[in-house]
């Protein structure tokens, strides 16, 4: 499903974020991208949702090289995947329901369909009861669950989570990871970047370790170290 071929990302002053990355992620996989701060985890995630473009090499998703995707096609790409962020990125002045419904409303879907999809997504993350609350009335873990509901509401085949538990305590982190695991069990490919070793060790999924922009380890059912 996802292929990285000889991908290098270089910033100014010859600062390499990623060096010659070759990587295959199959449909339906759950993958942890781990590494210390500055290892290149976030850059790799940004390449997936086209927030960054590689300096060289190709990034292919579903057979399409997104490295040279025209700017007007980027929103289409992002609508085909769900993205979860460390800082949740929720619209603070809108309710949980409206946050989740926001993107699908822009697609001209009927209210009935939107309602069905939003309530379905909120039930998956366990926030159906709090659909009228605003993000400020929710805990960090709940806000991240809203972020996950928003990411899956459009039924994407791929979910990218960039440090989803970075701002959460262990209990909430575990809940979030369990939700992501459930989503993966529905057949959605899940890629999670994290430096939370406890979670990686607990779930025993495929682990790709980055160090100074290079893949130094790629093992199935692995641990953090």
């Amino acid at each position: 499903m996802i292929q990285f071929r000889s991908v290098t990302k270089k910033y100014k002053n010859d600062n390499y974020a990623l060096k010659n990355i070759n990587l295959d992620i199959l449909s339906g996989e759950f993958v942890f991208i781990v590494g210390a701060s500055g290892a290149g985890k976030s850059t790799l995630m940004k390449l997936l949702y086209n927030e960054e473009r590689p300096t060289s090499g190709t990034v292919t998703i579903g057979g399409i090289n997104i490295a040279n995707l025209s700017n007007d096609k980027v929103p289409n790409l992002r609508r085909c995947m769900g993205i979860v962020f460390q800082d949740y990125k929720l619209l603070q002045n809108q309710s949980v329901y409206d946050n989740v419904a926001y993107v699908i409303r822009t697609l001209g879907i009927s209210s009935r369909e939107i309602n069905a999809r939003v309530t379905g997504a909120l039930k998956i993350v366990g926030l159906y009861e709090k659909m009228h609350a605003t993000p400020s009335e929710l805990s960090g873990g709940e806000q991240q669950r809203v972020g996950i509901a928003r990411a899956i509401v459009n039924g994407p085949p791929l979910l990218i989570a960039d440090e989803p538990t970075g701002n959460l305590d262990p209990k909430n982190s575990l809940e979030i990871m369990q939700i992501l695991d459930q989503i993966n069990q529905r057949g959605i490919t899940v890629i999670v970047s994290t430096h939370d070793n406890a979670m990686v060790d607990y779930f025993r999924k495929r682990v790709i370790t980055l160090d100074k922009g290079e893949i130094v380890r790629d093992i199935q059912a692995g641990t953090y170290e």
Partner: peptide, 16 residues
């Protein structure tokens, strides 16, 4: 700014 950034990252089309 923040709202537009979120919309952009969520795949809301440019013209929207």
């Amino acid at each position: 700014k923040d709202e537009i950034e979120i919309m952009r990252l969520m795949g809301v089309s440019n013209w929207y």
